[in-house]
């Protein structure tokens, strides 16, 4: 889920960059040096998640797990995701330097939002925890896909149908991310619950 270089126009690029700078600044402000090591490890883990390909239908998709990172880190997920995207740009040239702001905003924004929204449900019953996990995974991709479609549409209204194709192609990914985030959340709550309560 990256927008490549060369597609977006100046206002969209500038808007995305400003939002990402603000989000990263808030995330960094809330992050003290005691937690920075954990966040860098999770940022690296998020990068590794993007190398995991899960079969779906005849093809496969790679995991994103932004919602999970949001649940674990809250606002701290913003800089963590931006750093992971930066590493992806350096290693694989996915996305790029100029669109990093827009891509950061598309992926990290929904991740933080979902994390903050569904975090409180994790202290409920087991069923509630599973629902929280599923919704965090599902909604983060859903919102990211919508933001991506909006970025394309605002860049050039001729991209309307391409944006529609992008949105539709993310529907199976939303379901997979929802399921995987749900399973990872239940696993973490069983094995090491303190990971999910870092902000408390």
């Amino acid at each position: 889920m990256h927008i490549s270089e060369g597609i977006l126009t100046a206002p969209v690029l500038a808007g995305g960059t400003v939002l990402t700078i603000v989000g990263t600044a808030i995330g960094l402000k809330k992050l003290d040096y005691d937690r920075i090591m954990t966040v860098s490890l999770l940022s690296a883990t998020f990068f590794v998640a993007s190398l995991i390909h899960v079969p779906i239908g005849p093809g496969s998709v790679h995991l994103l797990l932004g919602g999970l990172l949001g649940l674990i880190l809250g606002w701290g997920a913003f800089p963590a995701i931006v750093v992971a995207l930066c590493l992806q740009t350096i290693f694989f040239q996915y996305g790029g330097m100029v669109v990093l702001g827009v891509n950061g905003c598309i992926i990290a924004g929904p991740a933080v939002l979902c994390g903050l929204l569904f975090k409180s449900m994790l202290s409920g019953s087991k069923k509630k925890q599973m629902v929280a996990g599923f919704l965090a995974g599902f909604c983060s991709i859903f919102l990211s896909a919508i933001l991506m479609a909006c970025a394309l549409y605002f860049a050039d209204s001729g991209f309307l149908q391409v944006a529609g194709i992008v949105l539709a192609s993310h529907i199976p990914i939303m379901l997979i991310e929802g399921l995987i985030t749900m399973f990872v959340v239940t696993f973490l709550l069983k094995v090491q619950p303190e990971i999910l309560s870092i902000n408390n």
């Binding site: 690296a44 998640a49 995991i52 985030t181 399973f183 990872v184 973490l188 094995v191």
Partner: peptide, 12 residues
């Protein structure tokens, strides 16, 4: 999910 969860626990 469990594979990734375990990776997460280890990296934590």
């Amino acid at each position: 999910s469990y594979l990734f969860g375990m990776t997460l626990v280890r990296s934590w």
